[in-house]
């Protein structure tokens, strides 16, 4: 099974990629919200379920590309790693177009992460949902909502 528990020599349950992003997460926001200008905000999950993710995007109106992406996640190692890797996917090559970003599926995140214990797969669903909420927020309020410094 592709996403079953990783059996490596160190016995760590997560792949090296997950481990890397968990211990050295990229693009997370320090403090309550970004210090940069954003035009979309979304969240998903609940503390009672053990995972909460919040994310902020700045979409460049002319290119329709996500120029900036920041996140905060409460959750286990795979929740943190999957959000971090999502940020990497969005921001590489000068930012992803929002039309492409909307097409991101949990499987895309999983493919990028390498193996993930099967019971942990729901965690990565969190990332794409929170992102979709942020993009919806951008579509809804893109004209009037320009906040931040």
């Amino acid at each position: 099974m592709k996403y079953d528990i990783v059996k490596n020599s160190q016995g760590w349950v997560y792949s090296e990629t997950v481990k890397k992003h968990f211990f050295h997460p990229k693009n997370f926001i320090r403090g309550d919200s970004p210090r940069w200008k954003f035009n979309g905000y979304g969240e998903s999950g609940s503390a009672a379920c053990g995972d909460v993710m919040r994310n902020w995007i700045f979409v460049d109106k002319r290119s329709q590309k996500i120029n900036r992406f920041g996140w905060k996640t409460y959750g286990c190692a795979s929740a943190i790693a999957s959000t971090s890797i999502l940020s990497e996917m969005l921001l590489e090559n000068g930012g992803m177009k929002i039309n492409d970003a909307l097409k991101i599926t949990p499987t895309d995140i999983l493919d990028r992460l390498g193996d993930l214990p099967i019971k942990k797969v729901h965690c990565s669903v969190l990332g794409d949902r929170a992102l979709k909420n942020a993009i919806a927020d951008y579509f809804k309020f893109s004209s009037e909502k320009m906040v931040g410094k």
């Binding site: 053990g50 409460y74 286990c76 190692a77 019971k119």
Partner: peptide, 29 residues
Amino acid sequence: AVEGEALSLMLDEEAVMVATGSACASSDL
């Protein structure tokens, strides 16, 4: 504000071993 599995895995990296009651570390979630 911090989750137990993440906490225990990061502690493990510091060579400290503790248990957690978090769902994320259990087989039934």
